[in-house]
Design a protein around this nucleic acid. Sequence first.
DNA 1: CGTCATTGCGTCCGCAAGACGCAATGTGCT
DNA 2: AGCACATTGCGTCTTGCGGACGCAATGACG
Lengths: 221, 221
Amino acid sequence: MFGFHGRELKILLVKWKHLGRWSLPGGHVRRDESIDLAAGRVLRERTGLDRIFLQQFHAFGDTDRGEHALRGFSAALGLEGTEQEWMVDRVVSIGYLALVDFAEVAPTPDAFSDECRWWDVREHPPLLFDHDAMIAQALGTLRARASYLPLGRNLLPEKFTMPELQRLYEAVLGHPLDRRNFQKRILDLGFVERLPERKLGGAHRAPYLYRFLPSSATRRV
Amino acid sequence: MFGFHGRELKILLVKWKHLGRWSLPGGHVRRDESIDLAAGRVLRERTGLDRIFLQQFHAFGDTDRGEHALRGFSAALGLEGTEQEWMVDRVVSIGYLALVDFAEVAPTPDAFSDECRWWDVREHPPLLFDHDAMIAQALGTLRARASYLPLGRNLLPEKFTMPELQRLYEAVLGHPLDRRNFQKRILDLGFVERLPERKLGGAHRAPYLYRFLPSSATRRV
DNA sequence: CGTCATTGCGTCCGCAAGACGCAATGTGCT
DNA sequence: AGCACATTGCGTCTTGCGGACGCAATGACG
């Protein structure tokens, strides 16, 4: 779950009870639930948001993904002898990436965690399991898809300025972009429209406000 | 599992015992086996080939993927009352695409099938489960990755002519390409080298033979 | 009211892709 | 043996997009 705030790309992490270490938010697929719906449910439970950009990016199924970190804690976590004891054994995870509006998220821990909050994507504690690698892969996918995805539609508030959108792309891509070429490219992608209003209150010349067009009005690739 | 033969892209299918219908080749992940290794094992069992191009492309996990087609046959297939009875219930599949040299494959049925053979990718029987959709998605992934993947390294024999390589790309992309621009692009991608030999026996001017450079000699993107 | 960083808009250059011309060449037919 | 012909090898021209960069307009602040 990616967010964007103050020039930086953020990820939502949860802190496990008893272990005191952090991991990506996750959950388990119910027997009568599709994996897409399961991902949507987990997203909703952690953020309170629904109907959000959510895309599968990779399945992780190595035999040693670091489940052993849970071994000593299965009793404390209430897993020992229960139906969920497989959690400390072999697990295959299907990774989904979500893009959410930072300001609208209400981070909520799950049954196994006692904290849930945003971290800077470039500066977060080492994670449990193989989740560091998962973040790297999610970022790679995000970068690859950034060229044809209306990123800001989900990561920014409804109205935004061009510099704000540019800082988002810079955070995702990891390198600075030319201000003038960026504006040109975005505009003839046709995803956004310029509003007559300008954003006042900044320290300098007032930039125009923009808004994403409804996806029905934009042609898909 | 994609192959290439006579201007056409091919897929390997298996025909289920008793049901008499076709599906993609597949298998189940063992408890102590990574999903990548499981995919490699299935590939090896169906084709006899090893160490082949194999890439995960999507996980399929809807609740109704057509497992009901197996319902009446679980006894005939030897599943009833066994540990594998879940096969007729809920299954999540992780799709891998493989590129193999058509000429080197020895199609081999598995325990549930009595036939295994190549089909034209544009002309095959309607498949069991959600496998028609899986092929569509695999083809889409293949097309998207065709621009930066040395396709022929796995789908063609060691030596090949430029027109042969072009027909492969046309089969994958689904539309014709300009002969001269194609040659230019391929050559300055730097994946292949021209051999001094020419392929004689054709009806017209003899084309040069080419060979893929070892992947170590080509720079990755 | 002047300073100044920032914004809006435009130009120039280079590269890669697409359209297409032309000469060379191996086969098969007469 | 010679000719017709489809195919191959190689080159040119045009087009569109991205990256580098110039210049005037503008809003806040001292």
